[in-house]
Design a binder for these strands. Structure first.
Length: 261
DNA sequence: ATGGCGCCACATTGGCGA
């Protein structure tokens, strides 16, 4: 079973790349973030014609998350329980025998800002939601853009980011609190030394210099973690490919996790 | 020391992302 997390930075300008990705990787489930689209404006018919199902929560301009799956999806959560939030950042469904969510954790902008506080509250509410509705002994996965580099080695230039809201201890603690529900990050097991990234700034030649961060993670319950074969970052998808007429890349690359069936 | 790109919208500049 192949599951993927990808922050597409708006699906509309990424449409050709998205369908190219489906064709190339043939994933079982894709967790999308930042679709930046109302649900009714997503290319549902084209996704179904290509052979996948779609479930999503959306809003105009910002946020928006989706599940794209070969098998039908039964949506179990559209947002976080007991957390009033106009921002579409979380969807969980049951598909292919697993419970899988797409999460777009708030960025937080600056340490000490209102957005930083919202980020911490969001992560705290996610943990409470899991405590209330989920079982760590089930086949459970949350894939997404966590807007956090958990280890210093998850940044090419940690000194540049150490005091940022992506590496701040408060955020790392809040992420760890979610993980303590019963998740492991297979990437960290397979790449103990770090240095593999999923996001590169559009500016400053971030990608050519590999000046990136690992902020997209697949969190798996123990039963799923045992099934992990490989974790890959599709760096090719982050390239410009000016010759292919498929548009510009997202600033995030897809994270691809293969599980034993 | 900072911005540098890309996307979006009551657009032709400003907000946001990370």
């Amino acid at each position: 079973m192949r599951i993927v997390s990808w922050n597409v930075n708006s699906l509309k300008p990424r449409r050709d790349r998205f369908f190219r990705f489906l064709k190339t990787w043939n994933p079982d489930v894709v967790c999308l973030q930042e679709t930046k689209s109302m649900v009714e404006d997503l290319p549902q018919e084209a996704i179904e014609s290509a052979g996948w199902h779609l479930s999503a929560v959306g809003q105009k301009t910002y946020n928006g998350v989706a599940l794209v799956s070969k098998l039908p999806i039964e949506v179990v959560s559209e947002g976080i329980d007991d957390f009033e939030d106009p921002q579409a950042r979380f969807i969980m469904g049951v598909t292919g025998g697993i419970r899988i969510a797409s999460a777009y954790v708030p960025n937080g902008k600056e340490v000490g800002s209102d957005k930083h506080e919202y980020k911490l509250k969001w992560l705290s509410a996610l943990r409470a939601h899991l405590d209330k509705h989920e079982d760590p002994n089930a086949d459970l996965a949350i894939l997404g853009d966590w807007n956090c580099a958990p280890r210093d080695s998850d940044a090419k230039n940690i000194e540049k980011w150490r005091d940022s809201v992506l590496c701040h201890q408060s955020v790392r603690d809040a992420i760890q609190n979610v993980r303590k529900f019963g998740f492991t990050d297979p990437h960290e097991k397979l790449d103990p030394d770090g240095g593999v990234f999923t996001w590169w700034d559009y500016r400053s030649l971030g990608f050519p210099k590999n000046d990136g961060l690992r902020i997209d993670h697949a969190l798996l319950s123990e039963s799923l973690a045992k099934r992990v074969q490989t974790v890959q970052v599709d760096r090719d998808e982050r390239k410009a490919h000016a010759d292919l007429d498929i548009g510009k890349p997202s600033d995030h690359a897809p994270l691809v996790v293969d599980l034993d069936d």
